[in-house]
């Protein structure tokens, strides 16, 4: 059982690490989620006892370690929240740069730091973008509490 667990954890972690090295932000987040799940599986594997469900043990049955299950539930919630947050950030990146590529994002950063004037043929496009940004800011400010 330990071998199965370690193989699963290793492959999840490796796949996650591989995805995290990509420039595409969506893949990066997929990698994050996979690595988070590798950690969750590791917690499950670190249980001290195996047995039946940790609620309502019948007499004589071995009960599974309830502590790791509580821990893993908390860890799942946390990784879920982080993943949701990261996806929202990607969404914000996408709406303001219309791209989810880290390379293009750093290009945009360079452009921004040069503070150059928009070229004439791009004017309509940049206008659209600016307006969209303004509207999104407005939308975020208006989210009812």
């Amino acid at each position: 059982m330990t071998l199965v667990f370690s193989l699963a954890i290793a492959s999840l972690f490796a796949a996650g690490a591989y995805l995290m090295l990509k420039r595409d932000l969506i893949r990066l987040i997929a990698g994050m989620i996979m690595i988070g799940n590798a950690a969750n599986l590791f917690i499950m594997a670190s249980a001290l006892r195996r047995g039946t469900a940790a609620i309502l043990p019948h007499d004589g049955d071995d009960m599974a370690d309830p502590l790791t299950q509580a821990m893993v539930l908390t860890a799942i919630v946390i990784s879920f929240a982080t993943a949701a947050l990261a996806l929202v950030v990607v969404y914000r990146v996408y709406t303001s740069h219309l791209s989810v590529d880290l390379g293009e994002l750093s290009l945009a950063e360079e452009e921004q730091s040069e503070l150059d004037e928009p070229r004439s043929e791009d004017i309509v496009e940049t206008e659209i973008e600016e307006e969209v940004e303004a509207m999104i800011d407005e939308a975020l400010a208006e989210v009812p509490t």
Binding site: L28, I35, G36, V89, V93, E109, Q112
Partner: peptide, 20 residues
């Protein structure tokens, strides 16, 4: 801004690995 987003991604990725 673009700078903050890129900084945020570097920060989130690295620190998430640290947390894991």
């Amino acid at each position: 801004s673009a700078r903050q987003f890129r900084a945020a991604f570097v920060f989130i990725t690295v620190n998430l690995l640290g947390s894991v």
